[in-house]
Amino acid sequence: MSKTDDLAQQRSRAAESREKCADWKALLERIPYAQHLGLQVQCGDAVVLVYLPCNETLIGNFMLPALHGGVVGALIELTARVAAQSKDRDKRCPRIIDSHVNYLRSAKAQSTFASAEIVRQGRRSSLVSVTCWQNDKSKPIASGQVQLLLPTIAAEQEELHDS
């Protein structure tokens, strides 16, 4: 491959990442609970991350101190939701059916990051796997799998009809 091809590919990948970043940001801004937690989108080289800044109000155990398990769960669920919605062609708003989170290490009162991997995205449902880490990406603090249901076009049309 020539150098120019390589460069062009790199550029298009960067543009794709930027586009995805803006996409995620817009979706996250529309979730009041994500705003309450202070979730932000961070753009990496090829990946888009969700960033949770540490905040005293999010601590669940003051003795350790550690982040509340529910906050980590929320980070995982919301990351999965934004990932699935941004991947969907029609940007349909998915409904979370179930989520399963495993806590691997104690979540310290520090900044936390989450990245999503879409295991499968179908027409009706989506399975997203999310990993959370703090200062070391190779030492995840929690991982989770979230099943989401995408509303069918027919149901959406019905809703429009009703309103």
Binding site: I31, G70, G73, A74, L78, S99
Partner: peptide, 8 residues
Amino acid sequence: CTSLLYSL
């Protein structure tokens, strides 16, 4: 938000 039910 489902995450709230999760925290609860």
